[in-house]
């Protein structure tokens, strides 16, 4: 084997990391950059699922972003995300704190609470649909049997549907928050709690002045992740309500689906998707800040 020159050895050393990175870069280009490129391209013209990009249309697709229908769906999404995430944080924190205590059967409870998270969303939504059915649903029948209601409740009617899909989101998202916070709670030194108890500090004060500062970085990062996921929720709401009644639960994700597949308007769907992409990017930047600084607050 011929001996390599100094120049060749330098070149190889310089190229070596790039050679190792090449498969990852290739994968990155394949699964991220190409779709991203297509997203921009399709948003700039008349496009459909079958033919792809057809022709440039003077940013016509972006006009829909000022349309009342889209703004309504943005508002619905805002409410869904706000209350969905608040619910996940609230119930996730309470359950995590409860499961951090040495209660009997704690291991079993810890296993049980992750069930909503591991069940596929489509399956869970179908199950919820049956549970909430206005006529034959388990929940109505149970409430009726207990004498708590005299008439069936329409859980998916116009006034209640958004609240219902938010509850389902909280049910699905809480386990992730519980698991994250349970691991964060392991970092809280027990001796500080004991000292606080000796000083007569009550439970609420202990949570706000001892526990919360310790778990805050994890809580904030997890909240940002849950927010990003909630913005993208599609399947469970689609199965439960299809965005109805009368667009009461028409999230932006459902709007994208409707534009692309029902109205065959891939261009506008991509323009809306760019808005979602921008929101997710902002959330990603916030999360990165938390990761770097161990929590901004």
């Amino acid at each position: 084997m011929p001996k390599r020159t100094l120049r060749q050895r330098h070149a190889l050393r310089y190229a070596e990391p790039y050679i190792y990175l090449a498969p990852t870069i290739g994968l990155f280009v394949f699964i991220l950059l190409i779709p991203l490129y297509n997203l921009f391209k399709y948003s700039l013209g008349d496009s459909n699922i079958v033919q792809g990009f057809k022709e440039w249309n003077n940013f016509d697709n972006f006009k829909y972003l000022a349309n009342g229908r889209f703004l309504d769906s943005l508002k619905v999404t805002g409410i869904y995300v706000l209350f969905g995430v608040l619910g996940v944080v609230f119930f996730g924190t309470i359950v995590a704190l409860a499961l951090d205590k040495p209660i009997p059967g704690r291991g079993l409870f810890r296993c049980l609470v992750i069930i909503p998270w591991v069940v596929p969303q489509a399956l869970a939504a179908t199950m919820w649909r049956w549970v909430l059915n206005a006529q034959f649903g388990f929940l109505n029948q149970a409430l009726m049997a207990l004498g708590l209601i005299e008439e069936n409740i329409g859980f998916l009617s116009k006034d209640t549907a958004l609240a219902t899909v938010i509850v389902v989101r909280i049910w699905q998202g809480t386990p992730f928050m519980i698991m994250s916070l349970l691991s964060a709670l392991q970092t809280v030194p027990e001796d500080i709690h004991e000292a606080a108890s000796l000083d007569g500090v009550n439970g609420l004060q202990r949570f706000f002045y001892i526990t919360l500062p310790f778990i805050r970085p994890v809580l904030l990062t997890t909240t940002v992740i849950v927010t990003a996921w909630t913005v993208q929720i599609f399947d469970s709401v689609y199965i439960l309500t299809s965005g109805g009644p009368a667009r009461a639960t028409q999230l932006v994700a459902l709007e994208i689906y409707s534009k692309a597949f029902t109205q065959n308007d891939l261009g506008t769907a991509c323009a809306i998707a760019l808005v979602v992409l921008a929101i997710i990017m902002v959330l990603s930047v916030i999360k990165s800040k938390f990761d770097e600084e161990g929590g901004l607050l």
Partner: peptide, 21 residues
């Protein structure tokens, strides 16, 4: 119509009829 008809699809109504509701 039955209560909460806004939540009903065609398939649900078939069950209502066959059940005598």
């Amino acid at each position: 119509a039955q209560d909460n008809y806004v939540e009903y699809g065609r398939f649900d109504c078939r069950t209502l009829l066959t059940n005598g509701d």
